[in-house]
């Protein structure tokens, strides 16, 4: 997979928990063009172990002199966001993937409703640039906890004008999905990014109101969760390894020196899917990619976020 070498040109504290990082390419050239809604995966060397975290690009696709990402410090984090907040300084060098878009605006939509919760605002900032440029009809609905958590509000007001709507929970302002989605014209697409309960509630409301499945879009990166350690056998490479409790299966495979495919590392894209040859216990699926039937079938696993509760799982890699 292709990588870019960047260095940190600027860091800005946006809110108490959110920092914004500006990257420029190490060789001083322009970074690749990208489409609104794209993300990159950062490779972070934390105590000699590589963590790979996906972050949405929120800089303008029209200006690739630099890329921007925002990182919310996660209290329950396995270390990636804390590392970004505490260790990454101006001048730090980071390897990132080329941009990947798993959350693109449908080019055939007649209207787009963008719904953001908290730090879920980030992918929409680059999308808004594209929507403005293409003169496509849209509305942005941004909900957050309290005034001090409203990251980028001024920037959004400048970019979207009357198309932006804000819902501050501490002021009792609630975004009513039913009211919003029940009055949209045919051909409208809805996009949501935010905390899992919010994403699920929005999707449930849209389905309940009879929205076509293809018009409902969400971006939900799951962070790998810790769990019990287990053993993995890679049938094709003939390697046996152990996945420690705080590491993902994909990370353990990479640490064993095996070049496994991946893109989003958040259980969304499907690129790292592995065939399960056998498992003497059960698979604990955490991804949003496999269908429920595939999950219960036990023949597939997404090693970026999912684990096994077993003595040994054998996969085709």
């Amino acid at each position: 997979m292709s990588h870019l070498n960047v260095k940190v040109a600027a860091i800005e504290q946006v809110t108490e928990h959110v920092k914004h990082f500006t990257f420029i390419s190490e060789n001083g050239e322009k970074l690749p063009a990208f489409s609104g809604g794209s993300h990159v995966v950062l490779a972070l060397n934390i105590n000699g172990r590589i963590h790979r975290n996906p972050y949405s690009l929120m800089s303008s696709p029209l200006n690739t002199e630099h890329y921007g990402v925002s990182v919310r410090k996660q209290e329950m984090s396995r270390g990636g966001s804390v590392f970004m907040h505490e260790q990454i300084k101006v001048g730090s060098r980071i390897q990132i993937t080329y941009p990947v878009n798993l959350f693109s605006i449908s080019k055939l939509s007649h209207k787009n409703i963008l719904i953001a919760g908290g730090i879920g605002i980030t992918p929409f900032l680059s999308q808004i640039v594209d929507l403005n440029r293409m003169d496509t009809e849209y509305e942005l609905h941004y909900a957050y906890r309290s005034p001090e958590h409203g990251a980028f509000r001024q920037q959004i007001e400048d970019m979207c004008g009357e198309r932006s709507h804000f819902y501050v929970a501490s002021d009792g302002q609630i975004l009513d999905f039913y009211a919003l989605l029940s009055k949209q014209p045919l051909g409208t697409h809805v996009y949501v990014c935010g905390p899992e309960p919010m994403v699920n509630a929005m999707i449930a409301a849209a389905r309940d109101l009879g929205w076509p499945e293809k018009h409902i879009h969400n971006e939900q990166f799951t962070a790998p969760q810790a769990g019990e350690s287990f053993k993995v056998k890679l049938a094709l490479s003939n390697i046996e390894l152990e996945v420690p409790s705080e590491m993902s299966m994909l990370e353990a495979i990479e640490e064993a020196g095996v070049d496994a495919p991946y893109l989003c590392r958040g259980g969304a894209c499907g690129r790292c899917e592995l065939d399960v040859v056998s498992c003497d216990g059960s698979i604990v699926h955490h991804d949003n990619y496999l269908t429920n039937a595939e999950k219960t079938g036990g023949k597939k696993i997404m090693p970026c976020v999912s684990r096994a509760k077993c003595q040994q799982i054998v996969v085709n890699l």
Partner: peptide, 11 residues
């Protein structure tokens, strides 16, 4: 198709 939907920029 499954493979190509994840085709990456630069690759």
């Amino acid at each position: 198709l499954k493979y190509l939907l994840n085709l990456q920029l630069g690759s």
